[in-house]
Design a protein around this nucleic acid. Sequence first.
DNA 1: CCGGTCCTTCAACCGCCTGT
DNA 2: ACAGGCGGTTGAAGGACCGG
Length: 264
Amino acid sequence: MLGHELRGEPFSKREHNRRLQELLNGRSAGAIEFKHQNISAVLIEEGFPYIDGYKPRANYQDRLRTEVILRLSMDAPVVAAAETAVMAVASVTTPWRDLEDILVPPPVREPRAGRTYERAVPVPAPRLGINYLEREARNASLGEAGERFVLEIEHRRLWEAGAKHLAERIEHVAKTKGDGLGYDIASFDPDGSERLIEVKTTTFGAMTPFFATAREVAVSNDQPHQYRLYRLFKFRTEPKVFVLPGSLRQSCVLDPVQFRATLA
DNA sequence: CCGGTCCTTCAACCGCCTGT
DNA sequence: ACAGGCGGTTGAAGGACCGG
């Protein structure tokens, strides 16, 4: 199913579920769906896209993780499909009509997120070599397409709020001032106060983790009232966006993925 | 077009069973 | 014995699809 999803081919989850029910003699549809949600959680942790609609649930057993990674490392077509999907040049975005159609509330992760304990004997986890989500995050054409999309949203938003003069002053600072500022777009609230927008774009589901620079985290923390992170997701098929206001330290769980190492 | 049926998505909570 | 990891049920809501 993941292969189909990554290649943009249609498939039926229900049909797949039914076949599994036969194979697993009598396990319920719900149980099988749960397991697919567990698989999503593993995929995300491994830096791999997950199937939209199977919202990740972190209460999976170690064995599942091992099996998923093993399965994936042997499945060249799916890995190739992921590779293609994350590297693809972003095409023209689908047209949209109303802001309400694309603006959604941020998804909520299940409260007990991930493992909150340490195992007595750490399980030697196999790893996928490549983090495909990180790779997608470096896809410049996707990033730029996302930024243009948000420029449009902002323009529309201010226009609809009756602040046309402000709409004209929106600045795509990532273009005009470079990308070191910690945000991409300088926009406004209808009352004229500044709104600093960082855009993160993915073609995958809403729960896909994104990568933030130290600068972005710092700016969000220093100017929480102005800062907004716009998370664009399902960008290729059915673009939607949710907004995280304020400090990323508050709204996200931040995992360090890179360290600066100075000799001790 | 209408009503029925199937598909998709997601939330919330419980208790069995296993390792220590 | 006991903690808690792990597997699972139920059902709601909305969308897609289909035959009449």
